[in-house]
Design a protein around this nucleic acid. Sequence first.
DNA 1: TAGATTGTTAATCGATTAACAATC
DNA 2: TAGATTGTTAATCGATTAACAATC
Lengths: 223, 223
Amino acid sequence: MFPTTRAIPEPTLRRLPRYLHLLRSIEDRPVISSTRIGALLQLEPIQVRKDLACTGLVGRPKIGYQVPELIEAIEKLLGWNDARQGFIVGVGKLGSALLGYPLFQDSGLKIVAAFDSDPEKVGAKVHGRIVLPLEKLPDLARRMRVMVGVLSVPADAAQGVAELMVSSGIMAIWNFAPVALSLPVEIIVQNEDLYSGLAALSQKLAMKLKEDASKKGRRDAGK
Amino acid sequence: MFPTTRAIPEPTLRRLPRYLHLLRSIEDRPVISSTRIGALLQLEPIQVRKDLACTGLVGRPKIGYQVPELIEAIEKLLGWNDARQGFIVGVGKLGSALLGYPLFQDSGLKIVAAFDSDPEKVGAKVHGRIVLPLEKLPDLARRMRVMVGVLSVPADAAQGVAELMVSSGIMAIWNFAPVALSLPVEIIVQNEDLYSGLAALSQKLAMKLKEDASKKGRRDAGK
DNA sequence: TAGATTGTTAATCGATTAACAATC
DNA sequence: TAGATTGTTAATCGATTAACAATC
């Protein structure tokens, strides 16, 4: 058959939370234009309009977009309107930081349980949640119909835990481990890679320093 | 003049750490082919070759690439070969997690000092580093010639701290605050947005659930 | 009305993918 | 040698950007 809705481009999806964040912060204003949004987020107005068009909402020429409508539309599009339940596995450095981060309050994903395979960590409290042994995950996931798993375990444990999640009915995995997971195609996997941003940053800096140096060299040679 | 080297595409830059990670883990093998790398990282071999070509290295037909050479070339390209010094500002949940994460060991960025404007946090130790008052940043940055700043403060403080960094000689900022920074164009800014990946994940899940439901609906109607 | 802003349609740009001769 | 793998050149794909008529 035909898909119910056209797939939204990944870059657009990744910008949507930024719009949402901005809109929530100006909720008192009734309307906003793409020009203004663009100025605040450092985006081209035309890109803002293209992105917002994905929500299905239409703005009004000369006026702009209705802020409350827009907020609701984006939340609905992202599935952030009604709270969904999730598990996190791995409460090391990164995992416990994620639990403390406001990330999940804004996003309608409620982390209802934390797991770890390390007996030292089991039983401890991390940001108000008791850490459970990994063995309890399958039963609990099925009973609570949990569909999202956050994976913040070491690289060598990731594939195994991911398979456990899938066999327990979890349909989407947010993967912070630096490995490529091999899972059935119907499972939604989002890889989060903290190294990639740092790589881009440091390469650009290295390049800039090299350029500056060669510029200086030419200048010095010229005088 | 002409640029010394052609700019490397951002997507390629973001994949380079993954190659590096893989190569380091198989350092005992002398050579590897793009086919094999692709299989391990779930990438097309042609994409691997295109990416690796950016390092300037050439592989040998039938053989593949020299692993140690490749490691060295990628590290050099990213500027991860010799350690660079950096500061972090904001040691809340996320900031302290970053400090504990192996991120900086692998990447040649050495975080030599942590700062916070909260007097409660100043003086405390976070992952072996004493937290200094923000006022000390400018002087220390200049004296140590620090060029990289990691910004993990709340959104409303980010612009101010970023400006302080820039006026202290910092040239590259890794920004975890969910705001668009306004800084001179020559400053390298890398925005890290944890919400964007979650948005992509939850939208895909919401879409899948809707599709599954409508499929089931049609099936039920048909019988 | 005049002018700012919209959505649409087309052009541009850049990354990915494909095809293939060269080569060890 | 035969076959796997490379780098190059061209085709495809998709996102961004530009142009512009419609409109409040």
